Simulated scan of single mutants.
Amino acid sequence: MVPAPCKITVLARHEMFAEALQVALTSAGHEVQRLSPPESSTSATRLVEAVARTCPRVLLVDPDLDHDGASALIRTLSRCGVSVVVLTAEIDRARWGGWLFLGAYAVLSKSVSLTDLLAAIRAIGAGREVLARDECHRLVALYHQQRNEVRDCRARLDALTQREREVLAHLVHGDTVSEIAAVHVVSEATVRTQVKSILAKLGVTSQLGAVSVAFRARWRPAVPARVDREGGGTGDVRADGFGSEPGGSTGA
Rank of each mutant, 00 (worst) to 15 (best):
I180K: 10
G81C: 04
R151E: 15
A94D: 09
D64W: 07
Q145A: 13
V172S: 03
T161C: 02
A24H: 11
D158Q: 13
R220K: 13
W219S: 01
R122P: 06
H14C: 10
N148R: 14
T9C: 04
A252L: 15
H67A: 15
T76D: 14
V186T: 14
L142H: 06
C55F: 08
S36P: 08
V84C: 11
V191P: 03
L25P: 00
R220S: 10
A106T: 01
T190Y: 13
V237C: 01
G232E: 00
C6D: 08
K110H: 06
C55H: 12
L160D: 04
T115E: 13
L142F: 07
R218G: 07
A210C: 05
L102E: 08
A155S: 15
A252P: 13
L100D: 02
A50N: 08
S212R: 14
K110C: 13
R147I: 12
Q145I: 07
A120G: 01
A20K: 12
S111G: 09
F215H: 13
S212H: 10
L131Y: 01
D158H: 14
L65I: 14
V213M: 06
H170Y: 02
V82E: 01
G98N: 04
E164L: 02
A155W: 08
Q22K: 15
V107H: 06
A159M: 15
A70C: 00
A214G: 05
A126H: 11
V51D: 00
L199S: 00
R138N: 07
G243E: 02
G203L: 04
A70P: 00
D116V: 03
Y105E: 14
T88V: 09
R95A: 11
A225N: 08
V61M: 10
H170S: 09
V2G: 12
T54V: 04
L199Y: 01
P38L: 01
P5V: 04
L25N: 02
Q33G: 06
G231F: 03
A18K: 02
A132K: 14
E188V: 09
A89W: 11
A189K: 14
L11G: 01
G29D: 05
G125C: 04
L160P: 06
I124Q: 04
E15N: 11
R79S: 13
L114H: 11
G29V: 02
V2C: 07
E129K: 10
A4G: 07
T176R: 05
D236N: 13
R229V: 03
Q33H: 12
L118M: 07
S206H: 05
G241M: 04
A222F: 07
I180D: 04
